[in-house]
Amino acid sequence: MKLKLLIPLVAVMALLGLLLLGLGLNSRDLPSPLVGQPAPAFTLEALEDPEVLLTEQDFIGEVALVNVWATWCSTCRAEKPLLMELARGGIPIHAFNYRDERDAALRYLEMTESPYRTIAYDPAGDAGIDWGVYATPETYVLDAEGVIRYKRIGPLSRQLLLDEVLPLVEKLRAEQLRAEKTKAKQARRTS
């Protein structure tokens, strides 16, 4: 009889526990189905020059970051010093200028330094859908083969870089080196 009295208490505690768990979850932390997939194809004008057409091939070749940004996105502005550090550290960063105006974007990059190596201009968010962009800023890590290995929705932080992004970049670079070595070995063997 005494045990039965405890049932409502246990039920309420269980419910509260569930709610507490729910509080800790970030509904924006969604797993991206694109991780492990090759970089989606696109054809866009370069931000600096409408005559130049860029495709996903311009992003591929070495381990690189792809950052989605816009001038109207204040979080992107806040994130930029970190990207600058990465760029200075020798990590190539490509970018989508997302749903932005060319003039505004160019002026912004003129006034401050640009961390980006290649910038694809995506005013209508076309490539955005193909790349599964939710909202700016977003950052992808591509391996040397152009496979998406990581995606971050929202701004990067120093902690995130140290914990997740930089170790991954190191690992992917090592993989790339290994792949190149075996390729060279095979080439020597066949010749």
Partner: peptide, 8 residues
């Protein structure tokens, strides 16, 4: 859409 944004 699911291939890009997940089941969500």
């Amino acid at each position: 859409m699911v291939a890009r944004y997940g089941d969500y």
